[in-house]
C-alpha cells in the first residue's frame, strides 16, 4: 500500500496511571484531626490576627507561619454562591447543587462548601447556615465529614456587613 492509500493516524489511546500518596502538611493534618472529632480548627496569624480555615500553616498576606490554633464555629454566613448544573469529573455531589462561600463565625476567610436542605432558589447572599455533620461514628479526618451546610433560620446578615469579605 502506498502512503497515499493509507489513512492518517488521527488518534491513539495511551492510558496513563500514576499513583500518589498525598500528605496534608502539618497544619492541615491538625485541622483534619479536629474534623474527625467534629470540631473546626483554624489558625490565627500572629501579625494581622486574621483566622484562616482550613489552615495551611501560614498567612499568605503576611508571609509568616501561623501556629496559634483557634476553634471556629460550624455556623456561618453565605458570602456568595453559584448553582452548579454542569457535570464534572471528581465531583462528590449530585447536580444541581449550590456551591457556596461560607464565612464561618470566628474565621476571616471563606470556606468552600455546598448548601442543601432548602430549594436552590432560596439560597442567597447573607443567609445563615450551619454544617451538617455525618453521624458521629462516621467522623473521619476528611472534609467529607461535613456533608453540607443547611439553613439555620436565623435572620440574614445585611449585605453591608459582609462587604469587607466580598
Amino acid at each position: 500500500m502506498s502512503d497515499a492509500e493509507r489513512k492518517p493516524v488521527r488518534s491513539i489511546q495511551t492510558p496513563m496511571r500514576l499513583t500518589y500518596h498525598y500528605t496534608a502538611g502539618i497544619a492541615t493534618s491538625r485541622f483534619l484531626h479536629g474534623i474527625a472529632e467534629g470540631r473546626i480548627l483554624g489558625q490565627r496569624c500572629p501579625v494581622c490576627t486574621k483566622v484562616y480555615v482550613p489552615p495551611r500553616g501560614s498567612c499568605p498576606r503576611c508571609a509568616v507561619a501561623t501556629e496559634e490554633e483557634v476553634h471556629v464555629s460550624d455556623r456561618g454566613t453565605i458570602l456568595t454562591f453559584a448553582i452548579v448544573r454542569v457535570p464534572s469529573e471528581n465531583l462528590d455531589v449530585p447536580l444541581p447543587f449550590a456551591c457556596v462561600h461560607v464565612l464561618l463565625d470566628g474565621a476571616d476567610v471563606p470556606f468552600f462548601s455546598v448548601v442543601q436542605g432548602c430549594p436552590l432558589d432560596e439560597v442567597r447572599i447573607g443567609m445563615r447556615v450551619a454544617a451538617a455533620w455525618v453521624e458521629p461514628d462516621r467522623l473521619a479526618p476528611t472534609l467529607q465529614s461535613i456533608r453540607w451546610f443547611e439553613p439555620t433560620g436565623e435572620p440574614d446578615v445585611p449585605f453591608d456587613q459582609l462587604r469587607e469579605h466580598l
Binding site: 458570602l79 462528590d92 456551591c99 462561600h101
Partner: peptide, 26 residues
C-alpha cells in the same frame, strides 16, 4: 480530588461564578 478534601468547585466556571454573583450584587 485528593482524599483530603471534598471536591465542590466544578472547574473554572464553578470557581468564578460566585465572584460574578458578587459583582452583580455590588
Amino acid at each position: 480530588k485528593t482524599p483530603l478534601q471534598s471536591a465542590v468547585v466544578a472547574g473554572a466556571g464553578g470557581y468564578f461564578a460566585p465572584l460574578i454573583r458578587s459583582y452583580m450584587q455590588r
